[in-house]
Write a protein that binds this DNA or RNA. Structure first.
Length: 575
RNA sequence: ACCCCGGUAGCUCAGCUGGAUAGAGCAUCGGAUUUCUAAUCCGACGGUCACAGGUUCGAAUCCUGUCCGGGGUACCA
C-alpha cells in the first residue's frame, strides 16, 4: 500500500484550522481557515487570510492575530512564515520538501490525484444530438465539455456512465416520414444521408406552415409511427441508423465514446405511467386541454407534461429517464450538459423530481451558446458551419505547419500529427474558457496554434519527449530515478511548485464542472516549463543535476499527458 | 413585463464565496537560435474593471439603481 499523497494546500489548511481552534476557541467556526497558493510569488508559496477575518470578528488587531500563527509550531515542511501588509500570513515551503513531494508524485501512477468517488456512480448525459440533423459547430460544446467531465470524474475514481441521450423521438418524424416519401433524393441519401434528411425535414416543415393538408398528413404519419405501424417504424429505424453512422464517425474523430446510447425512444413505454404518478401525487392540473404542473408558486412558471393532442413532451421524457436510470444504476448524481436555453426546463424538471421523491442529486451544467460575430446560427440563415468542415479545416491548417517545420518526416506521420494537433486545437479553444460565457466563433480563435492554445501544450510535451530520447541516447543504461530530485534554479523551483498543484486543479475542475480550470492550470504549467526549458540546461548539466532535471521533465510530461487526456486532447511524442 | 447570464487592455478572455501593484494570449514594437524542437523564450507598449450610489480597514468581486448585449418565459428540445 503506497502512502497517500496529500497536497501542501490541504496540509497547511488543516494546520491553520488547528491553530485557530487552539488559540481562538471563541471564534465562529465559519471563519475560513483556508490556505491558498500565493497570488503573488514574491510573498512566498502559500498565503492565509484567516488572521484578517478573525480580527474583524474579534475586533482586534489583525497583525497581532497573525503573529499567533507565526509563533505556532510550524509543519516540518515549512521554511518560514512571515506577516505582511494588513495581516497576511505568507508561507514559504522548504525546497527539500518540495523535491520530496515531486519524488512521491513520480512514484505514483496517478501523480497524486485522489480517489474521491469510491463506489459512487455518476451518470453524465451529454452530446445528445437530434436524429436527422447534421452536427454543426454549436454541438461541439456539449460533446467536448461533457466528455471532459466524464474523464475528470473517472480520474477521481467515480464509476461514470456516459449516456448519449439522443433526440430520436418526437413530432419531427411525422414531417420527415412524409417528406421522405414525397421528395427524397435517393442519390443524396447515399452520399450525404444526414444532410439529405435535414433537407427533407426543412422542406417538409416549411410546407406544413403554409399547407394545412400537409400538416394533417404529417400528423397522421406520426400517429402511425407511435402506434407501431410497421412501415413507418422501419423508416424511423433507417433514419436513426443513418444518423448514428455519421455521428459515430465524428465521435471517433473527437475521441469520444459512450457507455450507453439510449435515445428518448428508449423510455417511451414509461411515459403514461409517469403521468399516472404525477396525478397520484396531485401535481398535475388540466389547462386548455393539456396536463400541466403548475409551478408558479415556486417561481418556475408552468410545465406541460402532456400536450392537448395527447402527446408527451420532454419534461415527461426526462422524468421517465431519471426514474429508469435510478432504478437500474442507483447513481449518486446525474449531470446534464446542455446549452443555457434549457435552464428553466431543468429547474422545473428537477423540482418535479424532488416532489415525486427521486433520491438522486441532479445537476445541470449549462454553457453559453456559440454564435458568429454577426449573428446566431440558424439553418434558415444558411450560416451554419458543419462540425466536420471545422475538423477538416483544423487538420489541414495543422498539416501545413507540420510540413513546414518537419519537411523530412514521412507523410503518414505528418498526417497523424496534424490530426492530433488540429483536433487538440479545437477542443482546447472550447475547453479553455469559462463554459458559461457566450462564445463568439471565429476561425482565427478556433484554430489558434500558438500562445494559449492546445498545440502550445502539445509542443511543450513533445519537447520533453525529445529531451528524454536524447538523454537515453547519450547516456545509455543510466536510470535517472536512482538520483534524488534537487531544486537549484529559480525557474526549476517555480515549475516544481506548479507540479505539486495538479491534483488540486483536477479536483477543482470537476467540482466546479469547469474544465477551463484545468486548462488554465496546464497552460500555466507549460509556461513554467517553457521558461525552465529555455533558461536551464539539462543534458549539459553535471551528473546528478542532470538526472534530477530529467526527472522533473518526466513528471512534467506525465502531468501534461494526464492533464490533456482529461481534456480529451492527445499528446503526440513528436510534433 | 418578468426571470437567468454577460459588459475587465485595440481584439479574445482569466480573475468574481471581498484582500497586497487588476493578469494572460493575440496584435504592435525591440531583443534571443555555433546550444536539449523558435508552434519557443526575454522585454516594452497597452486598463476610469459599462455607469452611478451604497456596505468597510479594504470592492473588478457583495448590495441597490441605470444603460447596453445575449437567452428564456404553455403545447419544439
Amino acid at each position: 500500500m503506497k502512502k497517500e499523497i496529500i497536497s501542501f494546500e490541504t496540509l497547511l489548511s488543516s494546520w491553520s484550522a488547528e491553530v485557530t481552534a487552539t488559540n481562538f476557541p471563541e471564534a465562529h467556526s465559519a471563519i475560513p481557515s483556508g490556505v491558498i497558493p500565493s497570488r503573488n510569488e514574491e510573498f512566498g508559496d502559500y498565503q492565509c487570510e484567516t488572521a484578517m477575518k478573525l480580527a474583524k470578528e474579534l475586533k482586534t488587531n489583525p497583525r497581532a492575530v497573525a503573529l499567533t500563527y507565526k509563533k505556532a509550531v510550524h509543519p516540518d515542511f515549512v521554511e518560514k512564515i512571515e506577516i505582511a501588509g494588513p495581516g497576511f500570513i505568507n508561507i514559504t515551503l522548504k525546497t527539500t520538501a518540495l523535491a520530496a513531494q515531486l519524488e512521491a508524485m513520480l512514484a505514483d501512477e496517478k501523480i497524486g490525484v485522489p480517489n474521491l468517488g469510491k463506489n459512487q456512480t455518476v451518470i453524465i448525459d451529454y452530446s445528445s444530438p437530434n436524429v436527422a440533423k447534421p452536427m454543426h459547430i454549436g454541438h461541439i460544446r456539449s460533446t467536448v465539455i461533457g466528455n471532459s467531465l466524464d474523464r475528470l470524474y473517472r480520474a477521481l475514481g467515480y464509476n461514470v456512465i456516459a449516456d448519449n441521450h439522443l433526440g430520436d423521438w418526437g413530432t419531427q418524424f411525422g414531417l420527415i416520414i412524409l417528406g421522405y416519401r414525397e421528395f427524397a433524393d435517393a442519390e443524396a441519401l447515399k452520399t450525404t444521408p444526414v444532410e439529405e434528411l435535414e433537407r427533407i425535414y426543412v422542406k417538409s416543415y416549411n410546407l406544413s406552415k403554409e399547407d394545412e393538408i400537409w400538416r394533417e398528413r404529417a400528423k397522421a404519419e406520426l400517429v402511425k409511427l407511435q402506434q407501431g405501424d410497421k412501415e413507418n417504424r422501419a423508416l424511423w429505424e433507417t433514419f436513426v441508423e443513418l444518423t448514428l453512422n455519421e455521428f459515430d464517425r465524428i465521435y471517433k474523430r473527437l475521441g469520444v465514446s459512450f457507455d450507453l446510447c439510449r435515445g428518448e425512444s428508449f423510455y417511451n413505454d414509461r411515459l403514461s405511467s409517469v403521468i399516472d404518478l404525477l396525478k397520484e401525487k396531485g401535481l398535475v392540473t388540466e389547462s386548455n386541454g393539456a396536463l400541466v404542473c403548475d409551478l408558479e408558486a415556486d417561481g418556475l412558471n408552468i410545465a406541460i407534461v402532456r400536450k392537448s393532442d395527447g402527446g408527451y413532451n420532454y419534461t415527461t421524457t426526462d422524468i421517465a429517464t431519471v426514474m429508469a436510470r435510478t432504478e437500474e444504476f442507483k447513481p449518486a448524481e446525474i449531470i446534464y450538459v446542455t446549452d443555457e436555453r434549457q435552464q428553466l426546463h431543468f429547474k422545473q424538471f428537477f423540482h418535479i423530481c424532488k416532489k415525486i421523491g427521486v433520491p438522486t442529486r441532479l445537476t445541470h451544467v449549462w454553457f453559453g451558446l456559440m454564435r458568429l460575430p454577426e449573428a446566431t446560427f440558424s439553418t434558415r440563415e444558411g450560416n451554419v458551419i458543419k462540425l466536420e468542415a471545422l475538423l477538416n479545416e483544423a487538420e489541414a491548417r495543422a498539416l501545413e505547419i507540420v510540413k513546414a517545420s518537419s519537411p523530412g518526416m514521412d507523410a503518414a506521420q505528418q498526417h497523424e500529427i496534424a490530426r492530433a494537433v488540429g483536433i487538440g486545437a479545437i477542443k482546447y479553444t472550447d475547453l479553455s474558457q469559462n463554459p458559461q460565457s457566450l462564445v463568439t466563433f471565429t476561425w482565427e480563435k478556433a484554430l489558434a496554434m500558438d500562445g494559449n492554445s492546445g498545440p502550445y501544450l502539445q509542443y511543450a510535451y513533445a519537447r520533453i519527449a525529445s529531451v528524454r530520447d536524447k538523454y537515453a541516447e547519450k547516456f545509455p543504461g543510466k536510470n535517472p530515478d536512482e538520483f534524488p530530485v534537487v531544486l537549484t534554479e529559480e525557474q526549476e523551483r517555480r515549475l516544481a511548485l506548479k507540479l505539486t498543484r495538479f491534483p488540486a486543479a483536477v479536483e477543482a475542475a470537476a467540482k466546479l464542472a469547469r474544465p477551463s480550470v484545468l486548462a488554465d492550470y496546464l497552460f500555466d504549467l507549460s509556461q513554467a516549463y517553457s521558461s525552465f526549458y529555455q533558461n536551464v540546461p539539462f543534458l549539459k548539466a553535471d551528473e546528478g543535476v542532470r538526472e534530477s532535471r530529467i526527472r522533473i521533465c518526466t513528471l512534467t510530461a506525465t502531468t501534461l499527458k494526464q492533464g490533456l487526456d482529461l481534456l480529451g486532447i492527445e499528446t503526440p511524442e513528436r510534433i
